[in-house]
Nucleic acid binder design. Structure first.
Lengths: 340, 340
DNA sequence: ACATATTACGCAACCGATTGCGTAATTATA
DNA sequence: TATAATTACGCAATCGGTTGCGTAATATGT
């Protein structure tokens, strides 16, 4: 058990060729049932373990999927990853996970590393600032499946998986309007990313639908860092505008804002109504409970995983890149309830 | 750019041997500066990319670290992973992450897969039910560094990284006692895992220190699934005991319990004082804010990453397995504050 | 100028599987 | 029974780097 056993060792011991060993262990049809049993059994007993380095080299395939996410440690993203891992693991794929930490450059480096590592596919949720997508060309050139989820971009033949952020943004905004808001602030994320521009567009859609005027002061672009909530509060308080509703692009910001406002004596929803995004568990803990849009991360991960696996299995034509839209759902809670 | 370029292609083109190409690209000292430049430059231009399958095979090293966690999608664990990834990435290591989903069997399978994948090291946080550690023998036999974090077991030469859970459990309990609690319930996790037995032991330490009697009814073993909070509530309400304090082994359970109790009309901390564990962000959102023990996940991840990297670099003797204890910290908030 | 060191590189074995092709042995067909 | 078809396996090339050892060319020392 000390030195590693190779198929050559097995071959010598059993008086067959290494080729036969290899075929037997891979259940190749041209090996008789008897020798298969003999070989598998002996391999077992001898403590043989395949050397994937060698197998990968000759097969040019690693059974590994690369994943790049902005950061691992967020409720949403870790749910997604959990879903992806569940599916991948069930299909004998390993996951190499790396974080871009919202840096375009790190995303680029990670992309190259994962390419070099020979991943069979790559799944990406883009960093805030990524503007150039050339680093993905390697994958396209080599026809390695490439899939984007949540923060996506549309490259030829690359499936994308998201919710309908525009519709969701409109739903959230419409909900505030229907509960009486006339002047709504939208606190969004970087407009380079589809998820935030779409929500923003949906926001304007809804205003428009209800004949409410959109002014630049109705929007703030942020990096969604809850630690900087005071900037938002300042904008809110110092603005000439009197906002009666806020639509946040994520729950963490919404909650941070609520806490600050409540401390300052604001009443929610009486003075101002608030809705978030993502349905993070904290939305059900904050008092009053936070209305939000349910964005099912785990399910998204599962779908993304299944999609990439079927591509890898050739079940789906690589050329036919589908765009999957998950269902979202408005969850109305106390933070936005009508008060008249 | 279509076919993959190999060192043999470069060698032919530049009229040198593949060996020289390899050495040049790896900055080997025995290659002259000039040829190095010539080779590196041409490799660049030709779109050469190393084939790690081949490199790994001949070096028997993958620059990859395997990680097995119970589940990815928890605040604590995703923080840990984020820290590990940060360090690993900074040292050119990739991370293969898999979840045991609290199943001993899946943990076993994942261990074998990661072994076969040729990870250079393995980091594990154990599943709830794991009782047998034989699946790690492969790693010990091959002298592949193996490290346990958070939910650890003590195998020879395996570093472990945790906080001092016993002391932390005692601190939490002592805090409740000092705030007037006389009859405290401890809601813990599976006693197979050190983190929960240690917290439980600390709990009893503290009772003992203050001359409070420990009775079996002062403890419930749970799987820490917040969805099953009603069982706890039942125990609490139906017990002959009149508990005036609860020490939860994690914040999620504590928060779920608080929500249920508040809904039932209990006053916290007046009727019952509560302390959690982990310092999950929700502890600062629930009203009243939840007292807890700060268990710094990200820092733990960073330390764990650094530890394994130094082992891999040979900076630390593999035989000298250290046990790292992180500092924890009691965070007193309103949920446990004295009311007399 | 001659002996010794050093530099810079090539040769070839090696890492451990996979797989197309060929063939001896066995079975089926006529 | 002669021939065709199967079955079961071996040969050897291949995947693409890495590295110990050997050596020609150049540099250093006296």
């Amino acid at each position: 058990m000390d030195k590693k056993v190779t198929i050559y060792d097995l071959a010598k011991e059993l008086n067959v060729s290494p080729a036969t060993i290899s075929r037997a262990l891979n259940d190749h049809p041209s090996i008789s049932l008897n020798t298969k049993k003999r070989i598998v059994s002996y391999a077992q007993r001898s403590g043989y373990r395949i050397n994937k380095f060698a197998a990968n080299l000759s097969k040019q395939k690693s059974n590994t999927i690369g994943v790049i996410v902005p950061k691992l440690n967020s409720y949403f993203m870790s749910s997604v990853l959990s879903g992806i891992e569940k599916v991948a693991n069930g299909h004998n794929y390993n996951l190499i996970i790396s974080q871009s930490l919202e840096s375009e450059n790190k995303e680029k480096l990670n992309t190259q590393t994962l390419y070099d590592s020979g991943v069979d596919a790559l799944m990406v949720s883009l960093a805030f600032g990524t503007e150039n997508y050339d680093h993905f060309a390697l994958f396209r050139d080599q026809k390695i499946p490439l899939l984007f989820f949540d923060r996506v971009c549309h490259l030829p033949n690359c499936p994308t998986i998201t919710i309908d952020n525009r519709k969701a943004g409109a739903d959230a905004t419409e909900h505030l309007i229907q509960n009486g808001c006339k002047n709504i602030l939208h606190v969004g994320g970087h407009l380079k990313r589809n998820v935030y521009t779409d929500r923003f567009t949906g926001f304007k859609d809804a205003l428009n639908k209800y004949g409410l005027e959109y002014k630049p002061s109705n929007f703030i672009e942020t990096n969604l860092d809850a630690a900087k909530i005071e900037e938002i509060i300042d904008h809110l308080i110092n603005s000439k505008e009197k906002f009666d509703g806020i639509f946040f692009a994520n729950d963490a910001m919404a909650v941070a804002c609520m806490q600050s406002l409540l401390k300052k004596g604001y009443r929610i929803p009486e003075d101002i109504k608030i809705i978030g995004f993502n349905n993070n568990p904290i939305s059900e803990i904050i008092q009053p409970n936070l209305s939000t849009i349910n964005y099912p991360g785990y399910e998204l991960g599962v779908l993304a995983g299944q999609s990439i696996i079927s591509h890898l299995n050739g079940n789906i034509n690589i050329e036919s890149a589908e765009s999957i839209l998950l269902k979202h759902e408005l969850i109305a809670r106390a933070s936005s309830s009508s008060t008249n």
